[in-house]
Computed example of a mutant assay.
Amino acid sequence: MKENKFQADLKKELRAIFPGCIVTKLDSSDIQGIPDLLVLYKDKWATLEVKKSATASHRPNQDYYVAKMNAMSFSRFIYPENKEDVLDELRESFKA
């Protein structure tokens, strides 16, 4: 599956799982390595770096920003092979 198709489907799924959430694309041309998606839900937020597969390469600074933002709230690399696990973790994070 191409990354842009996976990302588009993921955005729709996030909106279905978390009614009323805002899912927006972040601009990596502004901050190189910033995760792809910002998810705002009630008083919580998360970022997701979308990859087409578990073996897709990471660009410079992506690991740094995913780790930094995870320490602040919730951030993960997400790809088809781990999607359900990440969405389960996100459900748990947004529940609190």
Results as ranks from 00 to 15, higher is better:
Val23Pro: 09
Ile31Cys: 11
Pro35Lys: 02
Tyr65Glu: 13
Val66Gly: 00
Arg76Pro: 08
Ser29Lys: 13
Pro80Val: 13
Val39Arg: 00
Lys83Gln: 12
Asp85Phe: 14
Ser29Leu: 15
Ala56Phe: 01
Pro60Leu: 07
Cys21Gln: 13
Phe18Ile: 04
Leu48Pro: 06
Asn61Lys: 08
Arg59Gln: 13
Asp43Lys: 13
Pro19Ile: 01
Thr55His: 08
Ile78Thr: 06
Lys83Met: 10
Ala67Ser: 14
Leu26Ile: 03
Ala67Lys: 15
Thr55Gly: 05
Asp85Ser: 08
Ser57Ile: 03
Gly20Asn: 07
Thr47Ile: 02
Glu84Ser: 15
Tyr65Val: 05
Ile34Val: 10
Ser53Cys: 08
Ile34Arg: 05
Leu48Gly: 09
Ser57Trp: 01
Thr24Ser: 14
Lys68Gly: 15
Lys68Trp: 15
Leu38Cys: 05
Thr47Trp: 00
Lys25Tyr: 12
Ser29Ile: 15
Leu37Thr: 02
Leu26Arg: 05
Tyr41Gln: 06
Asp27Ser: 15
Asp85Arg: 06
Lys44Glu: 10
Lys42Pro: 06
Leu40Glu: 11
Ala71Asn: 14
Thr47Asp: 00
Arg76Ala: 08
Ala71Glu: 15
Ala16Asp: 11
Phe77Asp: 05
Leu38Tyr: 02
Gly20Ile: 09
Ala16Gln: 15
Pro35Ser: 03
Met72Gly: 13
Glu89Tyr: 11
Ser75Met: 04
Met69Trp: 13
Ser57Val: 04
His58Glu: 06
Pro80Ser: 06
Ser73Lys: 11
Gly20Arg: 09
Tyr64Ile: 12
Val66Met: 02
